[in-house]
Design a binder for these strands. Structure first.
Lengths: 63, 63
DNA sequence: TAGTTATGTAATATATAAATTGCATTAAGT
DNA sequence: ACTTAATGCAATTTATATATTACATAACTA
Protein backbone atom coordinates (compact mmCIF):
# COMPACT_ATOMS: atom_id res chain seq x y z
CA UNK A 1 0.00 0.00 0.00
CA UNK A 2 2.29 2.76 -1.20
CA UNK A 3 1.04 6.27 -0.60
CA UNK A 4 2.06 9.91 -0.49
CA UNK A 5 1.13 10.68 3.10
CA UNK A 6 4.64 11.49 4.28
CA UNK A 7 5.19 14.05 1.51
CA UNK A 8 1.89 15.74 2.25
CA UNK A 9 2.49 15.65 5.99
CA UNK A 10 5.93 17.25 5.74
CA UNK A 11 4.54 19.87 3.38
CA UNK A 12 2.17 20.86 6.16
CA UNK A 13 5.00 20.80 8.72
CA UNK A 14 3.30 18.18 10.85
CA UNK A 15 5.06 15.46 12.82
CA UNK A 16 3.76 11.91 12.82
CA UNK A 17 2.53 12.48 16.36
CA UNK A 18 0.65 15.65 15.42
CA UNK A 19 -1.05 13.99 12.48
CA UNK A 20 -1.87 10.97 14.62
CA UNK A 21 -3.57 13.17 17.18
CA UNK A 22 -5.60 14.94 14.49
CA UNK A 23 -7.00 11.66 13.21
CA UNK A 24 -7.23 9.88 16.56
CA UNK A 25 -4.76 7.08 16.04
CA UNK A 26 -1.35 6.43 17.52
CA UNK A 27 1.94 7.68 16.17
CA UNK A 28 2.95 4.10 15.43
CA UNK A 29 -0.06 3.60 13.20
CA UNK A 30 0.86 6.67 11.16
CA UNK A 31 4.46 5.49 10.91
CA UNK A 32 3.47 2.06 9.64
CA UNK A 33 0.97 3.45 7.14
CA UNK A 34 3.57 5.86 5.77
CA UNK A 35 5.98 2.99 5.36
CA UNK A 36 3.36 1.19 3.29
CA UNK A 37 3.29 -1.79 5.63
CA UNK A 38 -0.27 -1.25 6.74
CA UNK A 39 -3.55 -1.55 4.91
CA UNK A 40 -5.58 1.15 6.59
CA UNK A 41 -9.35 1.36 6.63
CA UNK A 42 -11.26 3.72 4.38
CA UNK A 43 -12.42 5.78 7.32
CA UNK A 44 -8.84 6.38 8.42
CA UNK A 45 -7.71 7.12 4.86
CA UNK A 46 -10.39 9.79 4.58
CA UNK A 47 -9.50 11.29 7.96
CA UNK A 48 -5.85 11.52 6.99
CA UNK A 49 -6.69 13.06 3.62
CA UNK A 50 -8.86 15.73 5.21
CA UNK A 51 -6.25 16.47 7.86
CA UNK A 52 -3.71 17.08 5.09
CA UNK A 53 -6.08 18.97 2.76
CA UNK A 54 -5.81 16.26 0.12
CA UNK A 55 -8.21 13.84 -1.51
CA UNK A 56 -8.04 10.05 -1.58
CA UNK A 57 -6.68 10.08 -5.11
CA UNK A 58 -4.01 12.61 -4.12
CA UNK A 59 -2.65 10.32 -1.46
CA UNK A 60 -3.45 6.75 -2.45
CA UNK A 61 -4.25 6.39 -6.12
CA UNK A 62 -1.77 5.26 -8.71
CA UNK A 63 -2.81 4.59 -12.25
CA UNK B 1 -19.09 5.06 4.93
CA UNK B 2 -21.37 6.12 2.12
CA UNK B 3 -20.11 5.35 -1.35
CA UNK B 4 -21.14 5.06 -4.98
CA UNK B 5 -20.18 1.45 -5.59
CA UNK B 6 -23.68 0.20 -6.33
CA UNK B 7 -24.27 2.82 -9.00
CA UNK B 8 -20.96 2.05 -10.69
CA UNK B 9 -21.53 -1.70 -10.42
CA UNK B 10 -24.97 -1.56 -12.01
CA UNK B 11 -23.60 0.68 -14.76
CA UNK B 12 -21.21 -2.12 -15.62
CA UNK B 13 -24.00 -4.71 -15.41
CA UNK B 14 -22.30 -6.70 -12.72
CA UNK B 15 -24.03 -8.57 -9.90
CA UNK B 16 -22.71 -8.36 -6.35
CA UNK B 17 -21.43 -11.91 -6.76
CA UNK B 18 -19.59 -11.10 -9.97
CA UNK B 19 -17.91 -8.06 -8.45
CA UNK B 20 -17.06 -10.04 -5.34
CA UNK B 21 -15.34 -12.68 -7.42
CA UNK B 22 -13.35 -10.07 -9.32
CA UNK B 23 -11.96 -8.61 -6.12
CA UNK B 24 -11.68 -11.87 -4.16
CA UNK B 25 -14.15 -11.24 -1.40
CA UNK B 26 -17.53 -12.74 -0.64
CA UNK B 27 -20.84 -11.50 -1.98
CA UNK B 28 -21.85 -10.61 1.57
CA UNK B 29 -18.87 -8.30 1.96
CA UNK B 30 -19.83 -6.41 -1.19
CA UNK B 31 -23.42 -6.17 -0.04
CA UNK B 32 -22.45 -4.71 3.32
CA UNK B 33 -19.99 -2.26 1.82
CA UNK B 34 -22.62 -1.03 -0.65
CA UNK B 35 -25.01 -0.51 2.22
CA UNK B 36 -22.41 1.68 3.88
CA UNK B 37 -22.30 -0.50 6.97
CA UNK B 38 -18.73 -1.59 6.47
CA UNK B 39 -15.47 0.30 6.70
CA UNK B 40 -13.42 -1.53 4.07
CA UNK B 41 -9.64 -1.53 3.86
CA UNK B 42 -7.76 0.62 1.39
CA UNK B 43 -6.60 -2.43 -0.54
CA UNK B 44 -10.16 -3.56 -1.07
CA UNK B 45 -11.33 -0.06 -1.98
CA UNK B 46 -8.66 0.11 -4.66
CA UNK B 47 -9.52 -3.34 -6.01
CA UNK B 48 -13.17 -2.41 -6.27
CA UNK B 49 -12.37 0.89 -7.96
CA UNK B 50 -10.19 -0.80 -10.57
CA UNK B 51 -12.78 -3.51 -11.18
CA UNK B 52 -15.33 -0.81 -11.91
CA UNK B 53 -13.00 1.47 -13.91
CA UNK B 54 -13.28 4.23 -11.33
CA UNK B 55 -10.88 6.00 -8.99
CA UNK B 56 -11.04 6.24 -5.21
CA UNK B 57 -12.42 9.75 -5.39
CA UNK B 58 -15.10 8.64 -7.86
CA UNK B 59 -16.43 6.07 -5.44
CA UNK B 60 -15.62 7.21 -1.94
CA UNK B 61 -14.83 10.91 -1.75
CA UNK B 62 -17.34 13.52 -0.72
CA UNK B 63 -16.35 17.08 -0.16
C1' DT C 1 -46.33 -24.35 -9.04
C1' DA C 2 -41.67 -25.19 -8.96
C1' DG C 3 -36.99 -23.65 -9.89
C1' DT C 4 -33.46 -20.20 -10.56
C1' DT C 5 -31.13 -15.67 -9.81
C1' DA C 6 -30.06 -11.64 -7.15
C1' DT C 7 -30.09 -9.72 -2.89
C1' DG C 8 -30.69 -9.01 2.37
C1' DT C 9 -29.36 -10.41 6.68
C1' DA C 10 -27.79 -12.89 10.95
C1' DA C 11 -24.53 -15.89 13.91
C1' DT C 12 -20.19 -17.47 14.56
C1' DA C 13 -15.25 -17.97 13.30
C1' DT C 14 -10.92 -16.21 11.52
C1' DA C 15 -7.63 -12.80 9.89
C1' DT C 16 -5.75 -8.59 10.48
C1' DA C 17 -5.97 -3.37 11.57
C1' DA C 18 -4.83 -0.70 15.29
C1' DA C 19 -3.57 0.09 20.33
C1' DT C 20 -0.35 -0.28 23.87
C1' DT C 21 4.05 -0.42 25.89
C1' DG C 22 8.68 -0.10 25.64
C1' DC C 23 13.29 0.59 23.94
C1' DA C 24 16.65 2.22 20.32
C1' DT C 25 18.60 5.78 17.18
C1' DT C 26 19.33 10.17 15.09
C1' DA C 27 19.56 15.09 14.99
C1' DA C 28 18.99 19.49 17.06
C1' DG C 29 19.79 22.51 20.66
C1' DT C 30 22.09 23.99 25.40
C1' DA D 1 28.28 15.58 27.38
C1' DC D 2 23.51 15.94 28.23
C1' DT D 3 18.65 16.87 26.95
C1' DT D 4 14.68 16.75 24.04
C1' DA D 5 12.04 15.87 19.84
C1' DA D 6 11.11 12.91 16.01
C1' DT D 7 11.19 8.54 14.26
C1' DG D 8 11.91 3.32 13.78
C1' DC D 9 10.75 -0.96 15.36
C1' DA D 10 9.25 -5.20 18.03
C1' DA D 11 6.03 -7.97 21.17
C1' DT D 12 1.67 -8.46 22.87
C1' DT D 13 -3.22 -7.31 23.23
C1' DT D 14 -7.69 -5.60 21.57
C1' DA D 15 -10.95 -4.19 18.13
C1' DT D 16 -12.90 -5.00 13.94
C1' DA D 17 -12.82 -6.34 8.80
C1' DT D 18 -13.91 -10.29 6.36
C1' DA D 19 -15.16 -15.35 5.75
C1' DT D 20 -18.26 -18.91 6.36
C1' DT D 21 -22.61 -20.95 6.64
C1' DA D 22 -27.23 -20.57 6.43
C1' DC D 23 -31.87 -18.99 5.74
C1' DA D 24 -35.16 -15.56 3.84
C1' DT D 25 -37.57 -12.96 0.07
C1' DA D 26 -38.65 -10.88 -4.42
C1' DA D 27 -38.52 -11.19 -9.45
C1' DC D 28 -38.42 -13.86 -13.22
C1' DT D 29 -39.51 -17.89 -16.04
C1' DA D 30 -40.26 -22.84 -17.58
Amino acid sequence: MRNRIKIARVEKSLTQAQLAKKVNVTRQTIGLIEKGEYNPTLRLCISIAKALDKTLDDLYWEE
